[in-house]
Amino acid sequence: MAAPRTPAPLAPRQPPAEKIIMGVDPGTQILGFALIEVRGQRVDVLTYDVLNLKSLGTNHAVKLKRIFSRMLELIDEYLPDELAIEAPFFGVNVQSMLKLGRAQGVVIAACLSRDIPFVEYAPTKVKQAVTGSGSADKEQVARMLRQTLALPPVEEAPKFLDATDALAVALCHHYQQGNNAKAGTKSWDKFLADNPARALATTAKPARPGAKTPR
């Protein structure tokens, strides 16, 4: 008679997701978006990518329509509970500000059409929350996120800095809700101390405070 088999241990059940946060870095040339799932102190990245609008030419209305439709697709697929969006940067010219403001408004309108609340964050606030420095550049933000989160791979990662910016906005929103009492303590200075090989590359091209890549 065969000996009874020992049942395989059950995999630990994950707690239900507390919320899903959508982060958006608005733009009329490249728009970054990300979605994260929060379970207590655990944060999982569901997706992060960019919406490339350059191929649509100079017709601003066509671009705004594409932004609206893509946001609705993401909302219906991932069912986010909240939107965190980056505020337009005041260092660009008036025309760029207007275009960025419209893109931001379209993203917000798409979320409001699905009854999703939104919160706006200044770029310096996002950088401070994620890296500990409000003057960090896009590359520094991306490197810190790769340390903090297990990011899924993306093709041509250097070209996806708007996607990591959007991910930073979502993570900033998570931090602001008290889910990380020590947000920002893992500073960029500490990252360089832990990774001395990065120091030369970073100091060779110092970031201007508040600098943001034009769109």
Rank of each mutant, 00 (worst) to 15 (best):
L79S: 15
E73K: 07
A142Y: 01
R146E: 12
Q140I: 00
M71D: 07
T148Q: 14
A129M: 14
P152R: 13
P80T: 11
L83A: 12
T148F: 07
M97D: 06
M144W: 01
V106R: 07
S69D: 12
V119I: 12
I85D: 02
L79D: 12
Q140M: 05
P123V: 06
E120N: 07
V94I: 15
I108V: 15
A103I: 02
Q140F: 00
I85P: 08
L72F: 00
V119C: 10
L145G: 05
V119T: 15
Y78M: 11
Y121E: 06
R114F: 02
V119R: 13
M144D: 01
T124E: 07
M144E: 01
L74T: 03
K65D: 13
L100W: 11
C111T: 02
R143P: 00
T131I: 04
Q147H: 05
E120D: 03
Q128L: 15
E155Q: 15
K127R: 12
L83C: 11
L98F: 13
T124H: 09
V154P: 01
M71H: 06
V126Q: 02
K99W: 02
S133E: 08
T131K: 03
Q147C: 07
A110M: 04
F118P: 05
C111N: 13
Q104V: 02
S96K: 11
V154D: 01
P152G: 10
N93I: 12
S133I: 02
M71V: 09
M144I: 04
Y121L: 12
E155V: 10
P117S: 09
C111Q: 07
Q147F: 02
Y78R: 13
P153V: 09
F118Y: 15
T148R: 14
D137Q: 03
F90A: 15
V94H: 15
E156S: 13
A110N: 03
G91K: 02
Y121C: 06
R114I: 06
S96W: 04
E73F: 01
K127H: 02
I85F: 06
F90R: 12
G134S: 07
E86I: 06
A87Y: 07
K127L: 03
L100S: 13
R143E: 05
K127M: 06
T124L: 07
